[in-house]
Design a protein around this nucleic acid. Sequence first.
DNA 1: CTGAAAGCGCTTACAG
DNA 2: CTGAAAGCGCTTACAG
Lengths: 370, 370
Amino acid sequence: MATMREVAARAGVSIATVSFVVNGSRSVSPTTHQRVTDAMAELGYTNNVVARALASKRTRIVALLFPALEERLGGIALRMFMSAATRASELGYHLVLWPSGETERDVRDLVSGRLVDGVLVMEVQLHDSRVEALLELGLPFVSMGRTSQNDRVPFVDMDFEEAVEQALDHLESLGHQSIGLVLEDFSASPIVGYGPAARTEEAFRRSVARRGLRSASVTCGPSSAGGRRAAHDLVAALPDVTGVLIMKDDATGGLLSGLAGTGRHVPDDVSVVSLASSTANGAATEPTLTTLDAPGVEMGRLAVESLVARLDAGVGAGGEAAGGAGAGAGAGAGGEGGPGGEGELTQVLLPCVLHVAGSSGPAPGVGARG
Amino acid sequence: MATMREVAARAGVSIATVSFVVNGSRSVSPTTHQRVTDAMAELGYTNNVVARALASKRTRIVALLFPALEERLGGIALRMFMSAATRASELGYHLVLWPSGETERDVRDLVSGRLVDGVLVMEVQLHDSRVEALLELGLPFVSMGRTSQNDRVPFVDMDFEEAVEQALDHLESLGHQSIGLVLEDFSASPIVGYGPAARTEEAFRRSVARRGLRSASVTCGPSSAGGRRAAHDLVAALPDVTGVLIMKDDATGGLLSGLAGTGRHVPDDVSVVSLASSTANGAATEPTLTTLDAPGVEMGRLAVESLVARLDAGVGAGGEAAGGAGAGAGAGAGGEGGPGGEGELTQVLLPCVLHVAGSSGPAPGVGARG
DNA sequence: CTGAAAGCGCTTACAG
DNA sequence: CTGAAAGCGCTTACAG
């Protein structure tokens, strides 16, 4: 555990010079640079990040605020965790997992210990007091998901509107004219407006109207029982239904068997598309589900890149730990943050990827059918 | 952002005294204590954790080492992440997510930045170079999962042996005499010996022999297709099978329909128990699955408690952030670590919880059947 | 291009 | 019970 002082002594330079070499923060003559590099190698020197943090007032730690009491979190949240941590690491940062309630109080703790330079917020609601608190505190942050009032909020979110278009394009191209939507039931939940469900429903409503499709939408309780019930509700509301969009992973199996229970076979009689899901989840049912895969990995990655770009903005030529903050996916703007300014407001909507599997096919009477 | 110096000035004491009050590290007279407390409140003082870390040489940060490239991670891993972070927070620590490969190299980075006091390792294999490296480095750690040679390794793991007993007890009590085991197929994987599968298979082999049950075991590929195939393989190997233990969440749906494909109805003809799963996962299929729920939340919590107990051992009377490190579940020893020593070796096996649902019932010909 | 020095905000022997 | 002071290992104006 050699210190900078020891390296400096061995190289015959000041510790300031060692610091410059380590961080690339000042240019150093080639020979001096070499001597320092050699000394570091010989002593096995590594930077003490805590000391650096105290002196530089930047910890290079970002927090990922997650709802500690949330039971509904699934595979997509896990992917976000992992990809955010991985990307942070690549960019020379560390990701600390920060459990939080919905309260503003939890957010204040973030800033008080001065442990983190910036924050990622998960599971953001249409009205989210954490986002308000963050805005007020002035702590750099990026929202994963978005509030309804978001003109001043940097966010990365799934493009639910586009996902609905993709799903409807797919079904319409197969000849389907009567399409149902199945969304999670939040009526008994403390959550007032759940963004994903609200945006999906709104987008669906508009799109079927524009397309001139027959439609209905129902809500759905948890697990296979909820899905089975939803199947019956949907068939009751829209007896000639031939296409279903569902956004509730744990209910898809029940939806399939519920449809079977009404004498409708998937995909021969009814096609099903699972929204904001994953190919892996879709492969667990029989038939396998056509899915619109949620960009969980990309969201975690881009959220970190956007946050780090902002944190690094205005700071002199970054050192070894750089690694290229270039993004490159989705719609929206990718804000790199000019060298001078605070960086533009980054707002990114990421598309889902359509994965066609066994649960969707031509509408009855269309295409190669008996 | 008041500093300790400012608090000291306002209270008319030295900064050492403020430090003692903040950390409870020395007794302070009631009046002085009050003056300091008042000053802190008036100034809104909060401890700068970075400065404390540098001076005390303890960061109160622990790393959770997770396999960055692992695709198989699921809900149980997510629960571990969340519960570990939450418990760490309660104990005055922070949890940083540390992506790693399987290499020893990744482990060395842990120690070099001096950011973390201790480490949690996930997805530990029977032979795990990360564990070896950690042992060698002398960095305090707790393994989640366990290697085959583990006499010197502190770990928290699921009790696979006991889970098999619970499952077989359940099926045997229902009259089942011919029982199959379905495990993930690792033959095409770089993983040499996967602990959970290896331990489960071994436990199953012994237990059916001891119980005098007919048995067979087959491996299973991913998703519903794998499960369906496994059903056929199992029926071929053990035609009179009436009970199945499966430890592969994404294949359970396929197993159920594969059994149906051989003319066997669940639970009337065959009972199925899903090992190391969750009630939520079990509720996604139809019929709902009897599960042995993996103690993911408890594992995360206990691993942190065990690690923190070790880190705090030998350190003077902890401050406000204590909170009680008492555990209290599972077999094995719970090492609190005496005030003097390094703490005993904590090795804990946590039981699964049996959740009986629709997929298991009396064996054909037993109990109330037509 | 390089160095001397102050300072980041704490903790902790060491005295008293 | 309390204080003065050294020191944790860096970064960063400020000079030269």
